[in-house]
Amino acid sequence: MSEPLFMITEKPISIEKVIQKVIRPEAGAITTFIGTVRELTNGKRTLFLQYEAYVTMAEKMLAQIGKEIREKWPEAKVAITHRIGKLDIGDIAVVIAVSTPHRNDAYEANRYAIERIKQIVPIWKKEHWEDGTEWVGNQLETKAYPTGKPEGEDFI
């Protein structure tokens, strides 16, 4: 297997390749999360998204999420690929595959992975609408603090 378990790419993501990375004899369950580009957000029509990353750190943070998952679910194996660049409606932005011996852990660990991506991985998306653009990240639900490291005067 040549591709790393945790990677950022500018190319379209192969779901099958990400799943292949976690297939193993011990696994009785594999869950996949596939994040895609949505056309309508709060009634507003997105034309396309532009994703940007601090690539080297983002790959480290994805690997850290993998480490956190192995601490919580020791039998889990995780692979995550996130795409950056210009993505059109319906394009795949992220694929997370988790394999475990039993299904419950695979579901839980996969959910944990996507929530952590939205907290600690330095990736940003820019919305492009018919009437303008905006970097996403100023909404409360996407505001991020890494575990135990709140930053900013509003948090001290």
């Binding site: 750190m57 996130h82 939205k118 330095p122 490291k149």
Partner: peptide
């Protein structure tokens, strides 16, 4: 140097300091 840092962390020559707005991956 690619690790989240607290406000009080000391800086030294050669450091790479990245300013990371609230993230929006996924």
């Amino acid at each position: 140097n690619e690790e989240y840092a607290r406000e009080e962390q000391q800086l030294k020559p050669g450091d790479t300091v990245a300013f990371i707005p609230p993230v929006s991956g996924g």
